[in-house]
Design a protein around this nucleic acid. Structure first.
Lengths: 190, 190
DNA sequence: GTCTATACCGTGATAGAC
DNA sequence: GTCTATCACGGTATAGAC
């Protein structure tokens, strides 16, 4: 899908607003005002409000999918794979903060086809990450635990890291990565 | 505030719907239909849609506040305090799944006074938990880390545990507590 | 305490002039 | 590519009968 310069502006501005107030609480008039045009003018660039949401969310989802597909089959330890996943989440958090928030909060408002597409990607992503954890346990790299709860513990923090980052943008990606790797993999107890 | 039997039903049903679709995506007609009455009839029990949201969210927020106020000044180790906080989050997750989801997703749609009240409670809660972590580091119970990131790592998982729990209701509270304590405090690496 | 009827407003979206 | 004007719809909420 090609996006014109103007369409990209609209999508980026929408992501910012959606993140702050939620998809349903942002009207096309709000969006237009933020771009200093009238609501009707938006429709020369986009077909519907839901189309905008789809573009925002599926772009991020594809980023995650692509990275997982490249890491998952590599011939490295499970811990290295998890570190790579953590690093990727942090990078996307930094580069696409607004869009990531939209994905987390408003995916359920996607239109039918986009929703199916998104859910398929998410399920595949979680399944592959689950496999990494399972393998890590089998090979004694990780402790014996409830796999689904380990998966959830990691993902819940990584998915919502944008909430912390948007209030602490001055932190360096390196520090963020090192600290999160420690917190998530090694815990906090001395 | 006293709540009649019927008002409690309305609030509980609303929480269920809000959790599934989000506050703004649930209309008063939807809510009425779920209760098998007409939308207008709701207004004999409640004053506005936002009032319902306020009741749902502030009740949960007060639960958290109360527990933190009782644990924070106790004369026990920081680790014991953190364990108690984790346990409380899990208990509320189990007992008030829907309301907790509303608090997480829709707090920004509270009306002015409720919003101020909620934010004050949240800030106080986080400050007290931050103090527990800080003290734990000073007393060498916890590793030297970025305090705010440790705080975020713990809270991000605890706050969204309802997402996992609503799909895994058969798990016992004891197992959930033991596993989460391990994941959050000790990490996952062997 | 629930109903019908209705007021009033904001919503997403379209038509057509410029 | 943006505008004005407008539409059909669904939103929250109220009035008043039963």
């Amino acid at each position: 899908m090609k996006l014109t310069r103007r369409k990209l502006e609209i999508v980026a501005t929408a992501a910012k607003l959606f993140r702050k107030k939620g998809y349903n609480a942002v009207s096309m008039r709000d969006l237009a005002q933020a771009l200093e045009i009238k609501a009707a003018s938006l429709y020369n660039h986009i077909n519907s409000k839901q189309e905008i949401l789809g573009i925002i969310i599926l772009d991020v989802a594809e980023n995650f999918t692509q990275h997982m597909n490249s890491v998952s089959p590599e011939n490295i330890s499970s811990i290295k794979k998890l570190e790579s996943v953590i690093e990727n989440h942090i990078q996307i958090t930094i580069e696409k903060t607004d869009a990531l928030a939209c994905l987390n909060n408003d995916w359920m408002h996607l239109e039918k086809l986009d929703l199916e597409n998104y859910l398929m990607m998410r399920n595949t992503y979680e399944a592959k990450m689950r496999n990494i954890i399972e393998q890590g346990i089998q090979q004694k790299e990780l402790q014996e635990r409830n796999i689904d709860l380990v998966l959830f513990s990691l993902l819940s923090t990584l998915r919502t890291l944008h909430l912390w980052y948007s209030k602490n943008k001055e932190v360096s990606p390196q520090l963020l990565f090192e600290e999160m790797k420690q917190n998530l993999l090694h815990g906090i107890i001395r």
